[in-house]
């Protein structure tokens, strides 16, 4: 019997339906996908810019970003919770315990990962490449574009690391999202819940689903790497 069948069966026993599981998976993809998209759109150019720039205090900035790569999700979740709380500064937004709050927390978690790893990928390029590009008359933007193309393996790894990090974290999703059934419950929080319920087999099966999602995402990214025509012409 496949994991999927086990899942459907166990969920049915719990007076739920397969559609509940589907909702959880779709929400997981929506929340982490959107957070990843935002982090990548902002983080890749920011990381690339950091990688080609030289300014005083740059090392401190890089160290700060590397620290951000190790942010404990539960601390980020708590910070987002307190900011969006009714007694917090942005309480009026009404975002607490909604997918928007989860996306916010996950962007904060994925962004440093993507900036930091993109920066590292750019930095590790041959310094001669830059000189060559300049001598060919490339402007700053063209230069960054071409270097990103050269460093695309590292950039893909940065995006994959970001996705793996946020799709599997539970601290921030639980605190900021609230794990509301059919509203903000995602795979990672569902796994914690099923463990607390004592449904260890189901929790493990949900873990399998989560891993499959990450695996599928990695395949997608690797395919993208081969398709991408990023090089500056």
């Amino acid at each position: 019997m496949s994991i999927w069948d086990t899942l459907i069966e166990t969920l049915n026993q719990g007076a739920s339906t397969g559609s509940e599981l589907l909702h959880i998976i779709l929400l997981t993809l929506r929340v982490s996908g959107l957070a990843l998209l935002i982090s990548a759109v902002v983080g890749i150019p920011a990381g690339a810019w950091l990688g080609v720039s030289r300014f005083p205090g740059r090392r401190v900035v890089v160290a700060a970003i590397y620290t951000g790569m190790g942010l404990p999700p539960v601390v980020v979740g708590l910070a987002v919770y307190m900011i969006l709380s009714r007694s917090g500064p942005l309480g009026d937004l009404g975002w607490l315990f909604t997918p928007a709050a989860m996306v916010t927390a996950q962007v904060l978690l994925a962004m440093p990962l993507i900036i930091g790893l993109t920066n590292a990928a750019i930095e590790s390029l041959d310094p001669d490449l830059r000189l060559q590009l300049r001598s060919m008359g490339a402007n700053r933007l063209q230069e960054i574009g071409a270097m990103l193309g050269e460093a695309r393996d590292g950039v893909i790894a940065a995006v994959a690391a970001g996705f793996g990090g946020i799709v599997s974290e539970v601290g921030a999703a639980m605190l900021a999202g609230g794990n509301i059934e059919a509203q903000t419950r995602v795979l990672s929080t569902a796994i914690v819940l099923e463990t607390r319920r004592g449904n260890f087999a189901l929790a493990l099966a949900l873990g399998g689903v989560l891993l499959s999602l990450t695996f599928a995402m990695s395949i997608l990214l690797i395919r993208l790497r081969h398709r991408a025509v990023w090089t500056w012409k």
């Binding site: 709380s85 607490l96 059934e181 059919a182």
Partner: peptide
């Protein structure tokens, strides 16, 4: 749980009280 007013959050008592307060 899909009705909107009934929120099943699957968390401990302390977290649920915080949630209710918010």
């Amino acid at each position: 749980p899909s009705s909107g007013w009934y929120l099943s959050i699957g968390q401990g008592m302390g977290e649920t009280l915080q949630f209710a307060s918010e």
